[in-house]
Structure formats: C-alpha cells, structure tokens
C-alpha cells in the first residue's frame, strides 16, 4: 500500500540547534498514527515540517508517492494536508463559518464576485453547516456565532472541522485534548475516529498515553530529534512506550 504521506530523512536545524536529525515517517491511508515523545524530542518540529509551517533543512516528502515540497501552510493544504495546531489557530472575532473558510474564501458568481470581489457569505454558511452536520458536530449549528463565544471543546471542534472539511486526505492534530476536560476529550477522540472511518488518515501528537493507546493504530516514538521506533498498541505496553521515549529501552 502506498503511504498517503511519507517523510524520508527529514533534517531541520535552527542555527547550531538540531531540531530534527534524519526522521522518517510513513502514514498509511485510513490509519491513526500517534506521535509521542518527551519535551524537546522534535514532535512539533516534525509536524511543522510535514505541514508547511516550517521548511525542512533537508529531506524528502511524498504525498501518495509523489514528491512534494511545501513552502507555506497553503501548499500543504492544497495537497490535502490539514493541521489542527495546539494553539488552535482560530480567529476569535470571526464567526464559525468565517473561520472554516479563512484563507480559502469563496466569492460570489458573476460580476459581483469577479469585479467587486464580493464573498458568497450565504453559500459558505450553508456549506459550513453541512460539513459540521456530516462530522456529527450537532452543537455548532449556529455558524454565525463568533468563535470567542464558544467553549474550549467547541473551539476545538471548529478547528477539527476546518481540518476535516473540504475533502482533506490527511489531518494532523497537535495535542488536541491538552486543554480539555475528560468529557470533552472523549468527544474529540470520537471525532478523530469518525475521521478515520471516513477514510481520512490522522496523525495525532499527544502526551496522553492512555488516549494514544486507545485510538492509535500505530505509534511513532520521537527521541532526541530522531525516530526511536514505531510500535503498535498490541505489540508493546504503555510502560514499554515510555521506556523507549526516555531511552531506558531501545527497539
């Protein structure tokens, strides 16, 4: 099976600091791949390099076997890669629909759109509603509410919905449950499973071992800027994973 996303030998240096030291990663269609690692292991750098937020110093990226290089987040998006950042990257003052379409607004048809640059606000709202319904996010039916009026879980849902909408192939989630309570976390995990069931491949960065072992199909372990190995919840225990993460055990 061709990986939907593949990275080979990614290196990222910041001056003399090495963020990534030759990392490889394969993401198969319709799987949830968790990325774990201690602080400073290069999880965030890896994700940024995969999604166009940072340009790797060297290394290769492939989407469906085709070589790609992302200069900015839009490039990754155009290739079907969407990211939910830890900071959520939503604009609080804009409403739910405006956030879903931020950076890819749809203009009206005809002269109004082409000459007067008028946005198709109504059309975007309708599509936003449809996408939210399809993802089973029933709570966000009023897409005209500013995002800052939403709870943490609802904001997370907006961010995930934005990533999952518009037919994306890969969704990358950076610590999606870090700021959430137990109940909201479970809802987000359920949303992640919904994505997988729709055939979307998911990369999940998390510190939360029980959650990782609950939803992940495979687990990529980062250590000191390198990949320390890839395991599955069946092949190894949580204790093993932590041991590999901290270097107490090697694969």
């Amino acid at each position: 099976m061709t990986p939907v996303l593949e990275a080979k030998n990614l290196v990222k240096t910041y001056g003399r600091v090495v963020g990534l030291d030759g990392v490889g990663l394969q993401l198969l269609p319709g799987e949830i791949l968790a990325v774990i690692g201690d602080n400073g292991a290069g999880k965030s750098t890896l994700i940024k390099c995969l999604t166009g937020a940072e340009i790797p110093t060297s290394g290769e990226l492939f989407v469906n076997g085709e070589p790609v290089s992302f200069k900015r987040p839009q490039d990754a998006r155009a290739a079907g890669l969407e990211t939910v950042y830890q900071t959520l990257a939503v604009s609080p003052a804009l409403d739910v629909a405006a956030n879903l379409f931020l950076g890819r607004e749809v203009r009206r048809k005809g002269v109004l759109g082409s000459v007067f640059r008028s946005l198709d606000v109504k059309g975007m709202r309708e599509r936003a509603r449809a996408e939210l319904t399809e993802l089973g996010i029933s709570t966000l039916q009023d897409v005209t509410v500013p995002v800052e009026n939403l709870s943490g879980g609802q904001r997370q849902a907006v961010a995930v919905a934005r990533a999952a909408a518009f037919g994306s192939k890969v969704v990358v989630l950076d610590e999606p449950t870090a700021a959430l309570g137990v109940r909201e976390s479970n809802q987000v995990l359920q949303l992640i499973r919904t994505l997988r069931d729709r055939g979307v491949a998911v990369i999940l960065i998390s510190h939360n071992m029980p959650q990782v072992f609950e939803v992940a199909d495979r687990i990529h372990i980062q250590r000191l800027g390198k990949c320390a190995g890839t395991i599955t919840p069946q092949s190894h225990s949580m204790t093993d994973a932590v041991a590999i993460m901290t270097g107490a055990q090697t694969l």
Binding site: P73, T87, L88, A89, P92, L94, G103
Partner: peptide, 16 residues
Amino acid sequence: VYAVGDDKEAARLSGV
C-alpha cells in the same frame, strides 16, 4: 484584515 489584527499567528497558520 480582521484576522491579522485578531491573532497574527493564527491567521498565518490559517493560510492568510
């Protein structure tokens, strides 16, 4: 314009 003023980094990551 609003998105940039609201949260510059969020706007950038959103593709603005």
